[in-house]
Structures are given as C-alpha cells and as structure tokens.
C-alpha cells in the first residue's frame, strides 16, 4: 500500500513539473461534501454545478464532479476521500464533516500530491488549504448592529447545533460583544440547530419563562422560526437578526412594508464552494496562495433588502457565485 502511494506520488510529481498557468485543462477537481439535507447545502451544490460546468465547457479543467455522502458521517467522508485519491483527482475540495476526523485521509491525499482545499467545514490538517469564515465576527456584528440601533435590554440567543465549532465561534462573538455593553443582557439561550422548525419549537418553549425580549441574536436558518414563535405567543416582535435565508428575507420584507420593521441579515454565501473551486484551480496552476484564507460575509441591510431578495431564489439563501477574477481580487486584498 505504501509502495503504491509512493509510486503514485512520484508519477504525480512528474506530471506536476511543468505546471504553469493554462496547464489545468487536463486536470480533475472533485468536491467532497458530507451533507445535502438543507437549503444552504442545496444552493452550495447548485453553485458548484453552475460554475464548474461553465469552467469545463471553457476548457479550464477536464472535469469537476461533486460527491455527497449519504450519511453525515466523518468516517464515510474519509472513505470517500480515499476513493478520490485512487481515482486520480488532482485536487479535492472538501466541506468537512469534522475539523479533525478527516485529517488522516487528507494527509494521504497530500502525500499523493493532491491539492486539498477545505471550506465552510474546514480541516485542521496543516497540508490542507482552509477557506474559513470569521464566525466570531458574524456574532460580534449582531451586537454592533443592536448597539447602532440603540437597543437596550434583554437579548435572546438562538444558537446552532451544540458541540459544533461554528456554533461555539458565533456564540463567543455574541458573548464578547454583550460583555462589552452594559445595556444588553442575555436572558435566555436555546439551540435552534440552524433549522426553522427546531428554532420555533425551542423559542416557543422558553418564551413563557422570559421577561420582555428586545432583540434576538441568531445563527442563520433560525430567524423565521423564531419570528413564528413570537407571533404564536402573542408577543411583540423583537429585532431579530436574520441569516439571509429566503423565507427570512421575505418575512422581513412583509414586516417592513406593513410596519416599517427594521433589522439586518448576514451569513456566508453558499457560493463559497465556487470560491474554493477557483482556489483549487489556481493552486493547480502553480500559484502560491496562503494556507489560510477568509471568506467575506454577505450582508443584507434595510436599503438593499429588495434588491437582494430579487436575486435570492425561492427557498434558498442569498448567494454569491465567484468568478476567477473575483477570487484573484479578494486574495490580492488579503495579502495586504
């Protein structure tokens, strides 16, 4: 097995010697995805399909298929990555089920000379490239927004899936912001699992035990359910920070038209998969890129709500699909 891996490495190394720009047209990039059962992941896969189909038609790469594991399991994804190594992909783009559990498989891929780019769900293995989101900032900006609105009083926090890195990061950002502001106090926290129906259930449960709530900090995919729970309980709708889901933005638009309701919305665009695709392509073309990159957060405000809603597909998430030039521009900005 080891001999085989070494032989593959040598072969790939020979193949990789003349790598320079425009030499990627015979190369293959695979997407390894661990989960497809929500609107964000569906949009992510769709963006990948749209952008890579064009890239293949344009002769940028030979092929770029997407593979999703049937169960959301790190072990299954590790096996999937091992298959991709054997199938001879030049680069593997991964939305990882776990930050650490795939490290072994990723190491094997790197040893075989394969470029590994992780995004959204990133992996800690040093040889992999990471396109992360500053989730702490996503938490902090909510408190900043509440402050800018002059909101004082009680805050309800709707968190994501307990035990997941993203949930802890956003929570830390919110908590740090609230600590620095004596006017805001977190009076309750529930886990909405980024799912509208779960958020609705959890908020409905805790709401009777809470005093008046002035604002709700969320993590995306939970704002609409939270609003439903407040409505069903007959409570005044607080300022609910939203997460760019189409149902959330439609609801916001309705409230805005009816009562002049104001809020803000932010999340990462599912098109981050296309950002990762171009990063992988650039690496294959021999460009030097930093091991750690940060994705911009997509923000919807009171002023551009209508415009963003128009561009957000029904049932989906506000999206940005990246072109190669966009990625070059963003990466140039990062290096400064």
């Amino acid at each position: 097995m080891k001999a085989l891996a070494t032989a593959t490495t040598v072969l790939l190394a020979i193949g990789a010697v003349p790598a320079s720009a425009a030499e990627t047209k015979d190369m293959k990039i695979a997407l390894s995805n661990n989960f497809a059962g929500n609107s964000w992941r569906q949009a992510m896969l769709k963006s990948w399909e749209t952008v890579t189909k064009q890239a293949v038609a344009d002769g940028v790469v030979a092929e770029a298929p997407a593979f999703t594991t049937s169960e959301n399991q790190a072990t299954e994804q590790a096996a999937q990555i091992q298959n991709m190594i054997l199938q001879g992909y030049n680069a593997i783009v991964i939305d990882a089920a776990s930050p650490t559990a795939l490290n072994g498989a990723i190491r094997q891929a790197c040893d075989a000379g394969i470029v590994v780019v992780t995004f959204d769900g990133i992996a800690t293995e040093p040889c992999a490239y990471r396109i992360a989101v500053d989730f702490k900032k996503l938490g902090g900006m909510q408190v900043d927004y509440f402050k800018s609105r002059g909101i004082k009083g009680n805050l309800l926090e709707v968190r994501g899936l307990a035990g997941v890195f993203v949930d802890d990061e956003i929570h830390d950002g919110i908590e740090a912001g609230v600590k620095a502001d004596p006017d805001l106090k977190i009076v309750g926290s529930v886990h909405g699992n980024w799912t509208q129906t779960v958020a609705q259930k959890e908020v409905a449960g805790i709401l009777p035990t809470l005093p008046d709530v002035a604002a709700v900090a969320t993590q995306g995919g939970d704002g609409f359910g939270t609003a439903q729970a407040f409505k069903d309980a007959g409570r005044k709708t607080p300022v609910i920070f939203l997460g760019n889901r189409e149902d959330e933005l439609s609801w916001w638009k309705q409230q805005k038209d009816a009562t002049g309701y104001q809020t803000m919305s932010a999340s990462i665009a599912p098109g981050s998969s296309t950002f990762a695709f171009w990063v992988a392509k650039k690496l294959l073309a021999g460009e030097k890129l930093p091991q750690d990159m940060v994705l911009p957060i997509t923000v919807v405000t009171q002023d551009n709500l209508e415009d963003q809603l128009k561009h957000t597909e029904k049932g989906s998430v506000t999206n940005v699909e990246y072109k190669e030039a966009d990625v070059s521009g963003l990466l140039a900005g990062l290096k400064k």
Partner: peptide
C-alpha cells in the same frame, strides 16, 4: 401539519 404550522415545507424538518 408541520409545514402548515411552520410556514412551509423544508427538508430538515423531520430530522429531530
């Protein structure tokens, strides 16, 4: 019933 209660259908509403 869940779809009626929660303002529409979604893929993840049965997971729990």
């Amino acid at each position: 019933l869940i779809a009626g209660f929660s303002g529409g259908n979604s893929l993840d509403q049965g997971a729990e």
